[in-house]
């Protein structure tokens, strides 16, 4: 039997949530904070494009990212797939939503390394 838990509820609209990135720590690590979804996808893809243009491995601290949708995960996977041999994308503390999607759709993608 269906059990209604709540009545009609309204949630106050939050302001748009930007995606924020800045350089942090050694080795050109980029820290990204926010949520990756329809609204922030263009900024996310711009950021990934900029990082590809750099030298060496790409280091991203994702401890400040709370959510990545499938389109955002796809962009990340595509970025890793396009890296020349020997370059990797190293992501620190990705949100569980991202890990779950990468496991489901790109289980053999070795160019992404997840670190704590």
């Amino acid at each position: 039997m269906a059990v209604p838990h709540t009545e009609d509820v309204s949630v106050s609209g939050h302001p748009r949530r930007p995606l924020v990135s800045d350089e942090c720590g050694p080795k050109d690590c980029v820290r990204v904070s926010g949520q990756v979804y329809l609204d922030t996808l263009p900024a996310w893809e711009r950021l990934l494009g900029d990082l590809v243009d750099r030298e060496g491995d790409i280091l991203m601290d994702m401890s400040g990212i709370t959510f990545v949708d499938v389109a955002g995960a796809s962009s990340l996977a595509r970025t890793a797939q396009c890296l020349p041999d020997g370059r990797r994308l190293v992501i620190r503390k990705p949100p569980a939503s991202l890990t779950r999607v990468l496991e489901l759709f790109w289980p053999e993608l070795v160019a992404i390394e997840v670190v704590e």
Binding site: E7, D8, V9, V11, G13, H14, Q35, Y37, F67
Partner: peptide, 25 residues
């Protein structure tokens, strides 16, 4: 749908709200 189901109308501006709304419940 059963009566009394929690409801949220959304558009492009409220996509994060929709996720949070479902997660909270």
């Amino acid at each position: 749908r059963p009566p009394g189901a929690a409801r949220l109308a959304y558009d492009a501006d409220r996509l994060p709200d929709a996720r949070h709304f479902a997660l909270e419940r």
